[in-house]
Computed example of a mutant assay.
Amino acid sequence: MEKAALALSTLLLISGCAHNSHTETSDVNDSGTATEQSAPHHQMTDQWVGRWTGVEGLFLEISKDESAGPGHYLLHMRYGLDADQIGTFEGQATAEGIRFNRGDRSQMLRAGDGEATGMKWLMEKKDCLVVATGEGYCRD
């Protein structure tokens, strides 16, 4: 019985602490929080600016979209062999990578390696960006 009471009081203590930390966090200005959270994201993805090479002539060129501000990019890519599988897309930094819309789908460009691309021609590469298995771009 004493163990149950001890466990219950510990649970109440922990939940009270969690409640207090949430209350303190909620007093922070939302605009300041958004700036702090996005800063690390674009610092990581800023390192991706430049040309990345895929297989069979596929490529990805990432540039900063200065007019849209920090954490915004233009992704010029040939992502398939068909004539219409080339274009420039607006992207935005997130915790996972760069989110962009292509066609009617939201896509995520993530850091990975050659194995993550799922393509045998890139397996040995270490510095890659991957949209999905079968679509990746690497640097030498």
Rank of each mutant, 00 (worst) to 15 (best):
L81G: 05
P70K: 12
G103C: 01
M77F: 02
S9D: 13
R51L: 10
W52M: 00
G112A: 07
D46G: 07
Q37W: 04
P40M: 02
L8P: 03
T117Y: 08
D104G: 07
C128E: 04
W52L: 00
K126P: 05
E2R: 13
I98M: 00
L8G: 07
G80M: 03
D104S: 04
S31T: 11
M1H: 03
T35N: 14
A116F: 10
S15T: 12
C128G: 01
L58N: 12
R99A: 10
E24R: 06
A68W: 05
I14C: 11
D140L: 13
S38I: 08
M44K: 13
N101W: 06
K125L: 05
S63W: 02
V49N: 05
L81S: 04
A39Y: 10
H19P: 04
T117G: 09
M1A: 10
E61Q: 13
G54V: 03
L6T: 12
Q43A: 15
S9K: 15
A34K: 07
A7V: 10
C128V: 01
D46P: 03
M123R: 15
D82S: 09
L74K: 06
W121Y: 11
R78V: 02
P70M: 05
R110F: 02
E61W: 12
I62F: 04
L60S: 01
Y137I: 05
E2Y: 12
G57A: 02
L122T: 10
A7Q: 15
L8D: 07
R51M: 06
A68M: 14
I62L: 04
V49R: 08
A83D: 14
V131F: 09
E56M: 09
M1W: 09
E56D: 14
I86E: 11
E36G: 06
G54D: 00
A116M: 14
V130E: 00
T35W: 13
T10M: 06
C138W: 07
H22M: 11
M77R: 00
E66D: 15
H72A: 07
Q37N: 10
M119F: 14
A95G: 03
A39S: 08
